[in-house]
């Protein structure tokens, strides 16, 4: 499989990474280089093989339903680049 410029544009859009048209050829070349190299996995017979899930060491631990956190608005907002009072902000979203 090989990426065309439209696909590179589409994944950049999905990843919300702005790209210029002038970036496209280099990106396309680099990504295709990597993709071509990982094609080698196609030679592995994976019939009947389960995908790796988790670490195999343990199942998920559950915590008790107790409020132990929150009520820390100053910390939560301490690094916000454009807080307004108690809120984070974004450019107006039109629904």
């Amino acid at each position: 499989m090989s990426l065309d410029p439209a696909t590179v544009r589409r994944i950049a859009r999905l990843a919300r990474i702005g790209i210029d048209e002038s970036d496209l050829p280099a990106l396309q070349r680099e990504l295709n280089g990597i993709l071509g190299w990982i094609e080698q996995l196609n030679e592995v017979d994976i019939d009947g093989v389960e995908p790796m899930v988790g670490t195999g060491h343990a199942a998920l631990r559950m915590r008790e339903d107790v409020v132990t956190d929150g009520d820390a608005r100053d910390a939560v907002l301490s690094n916000a680049p454009d807080a307004a009072g108690p809120y984070y902000t974004v450019p107006k979203v039109v629904e």
Binding site: M1, I11, L31, L41, I46
Partner: peptide
């Protein structure tokens, strides 16, 4: 971008799922 691509619709099985199977091997 690479990661977005290998997870995207139509490519997940060919890349990510296959890789996780090879990882198990």
């Amino acid at each position: 971008l690479m990661g977005t691509y290998v997870l995207s619709a139509g490519y997940y099985d060919a890349y990510y799922l296959r890789a996780q199977k090879v990882r198990n091997l």
